[in-house]
């Protein structure tokens, strides 16, 4: 290689452009090829098929009284299901017009107003907010309080105070009967 290169030096520019082309083409193929070869390594770290397969959870909440809440597991995360009282629903609707960081109407966050279904993961850095048990602090807005850095959520699970940027997420779910839902 080095030999022929020094030979070609004084020759026509024609040969040089052809050599340049070959060099660039080879480099490009090498870079793309290396990238393609890396992808399996990178993608092997994404959720595996069996992890994805565990992605629905069925819940029967017929025993949950008004004002009570239960926590179920979906995709390894807690899901909060709160049987809201009429006052909580009224408060949530009234707050539709409050100063919200992540504006959303309460009606858009529920399928049936008395059942609030939320992923129980603080949208700041992923702690589980308190507020499910009667003895838990619920924060200034009657919803949930995150112990990690003090985020506060209202009775619709909307962020009202603290560092979290977004409302508690509503997971995809559907009512399979009056008192059962399938999450996922």
């Amino acid at each position: 290689m080095a030999d022929s290169a020094s030979h070609a030096q004084p020759a026509s520019t024609d040969g040089q452009t052809r050599r340049d082309f070959l060099l660039y083409a080879t480099t490009a193929v090498g870079v793309v090829g290396t990238g393609l070869a890396l992808w399996p390594f990178v993608h092997s770290m994404n959720p595996a098929a069996d992890t994805l397969a565990l992605s629905t959870t069925d819940v029967d909440f017929s025993a949950v009284q008004v004002g009570q809440a239960i926590t179920v597991v979906w995709r390894g995360k807690p899901v909060f299901i709160r049987h809201r009282t009429p006052e909580e629903i009224a408060q949530a609707r009234k707050d539709d017009s409050a100063d919200l960081r992540d504006p959303q109407k309460d009606a858009d966050r529920v399928k049936k107003p008395e059942w609030l279904v939320l992923i129980g993961v603080c949208t700041h850095l992923g702690c589980v907010p308190l507020g499910q048990k009667p003895s838990d602090p619920k924060g200034e807005f009657g919803g949930w309080f995150c112990p990690c850095h003090g985020s506060q959520y209202d009775t619709s699970g909307r962020i009202r105070k603290g560092p979290a940027p977004l409302n508690l997420e509503v997971p995809p779910y559907a009512f399979t009967s009056d008192t059962t839902i399938r999450i996922g």
């Binding site: 990178v42 770290m45 994404n46 959720p47 595996a48 992890t51 995709r75 390894g76 995360k77």
Partner: peptide
């Protein structure tokens, strides 16, 4: 984050890696 976890939360795949 999902890629780092290898799932939807910190779990066994995360511990392994």
């Amino acid at each position: 984050v999902t890629w780092l976890w290898g799932g939807f939360s910190v779990d066994n795949p995360t511990l392994n890696r």
